[in-house]
């Protein structure tokens, strides 16, 4: 437990020193600010652009369009940035050998994985919250209709998917070697998930659907009751992946 606390502290300090916070803060501020604005201005932008005499008239945007942009940006750019920032979470320290000293001094290997996951989850939650709040404030300011059904559940799904991705990154880091092996494996696993998600029968059992159906949950096309099972399964899967990460990291040569 002492090792865990010390390592959490080390991770928190490291986060502020290697530009990760700048990346995450600016990404989620950018997503939060630009999504509602883009939704609002898109009809204007189209009317300014002259596309060879072709005029595209879009219907008056609503708060739903703002959230459509937000979910699209969050699930693509947000998750990609999360992958890039955290892909080296384990491999960086393994290739540099900075972990070896700590481990030989008696730091437990479980503490390393758990502390890294705790800190990553904390940061993801924090910046996700910042982006979400800014997006919501902008949406309220720019649009008239601003109450949504199941907004919390929809946002929670996306957040949970992020938590799942973080566990996947850690797990991939324990079973691969080298700088980019972990990133590659995570991407491969996510792509498999994305492909599987195109089969509607499998969507229920696929964590990826938590990041793709957010707007449909708001519009009511996908019922919350259909996704409760997916949420439960993802929590279970995240825990399992972490347990495997702990196991493989114990076996790993450092």
């Amino acid at each position: 437990m002492r090792g865990f606390k010390a390592f959490v502290k080390k991770e928190l300090i490291e986060f502020t020193r290697n530009y990760k916070w700048i990346i995450l803060l600016s990404t989620f501020l950018f997503i939060g600010m630009s999504s509602p604005l883009l939704a609002k201005l898109l009809p204007n932008i189209f009317s300014i652009l002259e596309m060879g005499g072709l005029t595209i008239t879009l219907p008056e945007p609503t708060g739903m369009d703002a959230y459509s942009q937000f979910f699209k940006n969050m699930s693509q750019m947000g998750i990609i940035v999360l992958l890039l920032v955290y892909s080296g979470i384990l491999s960086n320290e393994l290739t540099k050998g900075t972990l070896t000293i700590l481990l030989s001094k008696g730091l437990s290997r479980n503490a390393v994985i758990l502390a890294k996951y705790t800190v990553a989850l904390f940061h993801w939650s924090l910046f996700f919250l910042i982006g979400t709040i800014i997006n919501h404030v902008y949406t309220i300011y720019l649009f008239e209709k601003t109450s949504f059904d199941h907004l919390f559940f929809s946002l929670f799904s996306l957040w949970l998917f992020g938590a799942f991705v973080l566990a996947l990154i850690l797990f991939s880091g324990t079973v691969t070697t080298g700088n980019y092996g972990g990133l590659l494996l995570t991407v491969v696993l996510l792509v498999i998930g994305l492909i599987a998600n195109s089969f509607s029968a499998l969507q229920k059992y696929n964590p990826v659907s938590l990041a793709t159906d957010n707007l449909e949950i708001l519009t009511g096309e996908v019922l919350v009751s259909e996704r409760i099972g997916t949420v439960g399964l993802t929590v279970l899967l995240t825990t399992t992946i972490l347990v495997f990460a702990l196991y493989f990291f114990k076996e790993k040569k450092v």
């Binding site: 700048i22 990346i23 990404t27 750019m77 890039l84 920032v85 892909s87 080296g88």
Partner: peptide, 11 residues
């Protein structure tokens, strides 16, 4: 934009 600096810092 945005992604460029992020790529620089991360990889």
């Amino acid at each position: 934009q945005i992604i460029g600096p992020i790529l620089y810092f991360s990889i």
